[in-house]
Amino acid sequence: MSPKDISRRKFIKNLGGGVVGAGVAIQTLSAKTRKESKPPSKSDSAVALTFTVNKKPITLLVEPESTLADVLRNDLKLTGTKVVCNHGECGACTVLLDGRAVYSCHMLALDAQGKSVTTIEGLMDGEKLHPVQEAFVEHDGLQCGFCTPGQVMAAEAILIKNPKPGKEEIIEGMSGNLCRCAAYPNILKSAVAAAEKLNKS
C-alpha cells in the first residue's frame, strides 16, 4: 500500500473523527437569556407592491432593494424559485413576467408592479403537473433538481412564444439556464418532448 503522508482521504477521515475541541463550554440557556430582538418588520422606506402571482392578486409592502426572488421566496414562501448565483448569471430563478422569462434574482420586486408573475408553483394544476413538468420527469431532465424550476420555466416561456419551436429555437431559448450537474442532453430532450406533447393535445 502506498502510505501518503497526509492524503486528502486521511484528512476527511480526520475531520470525521478527530477534531478536538479545547474546552468548548456549552451552557444550556434559560428562556431569559434567549436573544430576541424585534421580529423583522418593514422599514419606513417600504413600498406597496401590487401584482399578480400565479393568478392570485397580491399586495404587500416590500423594501425597494428587495429583488423579486427575495419577495417570492421570503415573503410569499414560494421556495420553488431558487437562487443560485444571485447575479443573473445562471437562470435558476427564472420566472415568467407577463409571460416572458426573466431572472427574478436580478430585478427589483417593484419592477413587477401591476404585472403578472408565474412561478414553478403556478404551473401546477392543483397537484397535477404541467405537461412541461411531466416531460422533465419522463425524460429525466434533471439530476439534483436545484436548477430545474428555472429550466422548466425557461422551456415554458419558449412554448408560450412559439408553440411549435424548432430544436435550434429550444436550444437558444434554454441557453440562459445553467445546470452544473450538466443534465443538458436530457433537459433538451425534455423540452423537445414537452413541445411535442403540447402540440398533440
Binding site: 413576467l97 437558444e172 440562459g176
Partner: peptide, 9 residues
C-alpha cells in the same frame, strides 16, 4: 446579446 431572459429585461 446575453441570454433570452436578459434580452427580455
Amino acid at each position: 446579446i446575453a441570454s433570452p431572459q436578459l434580452r427580455n429585461m
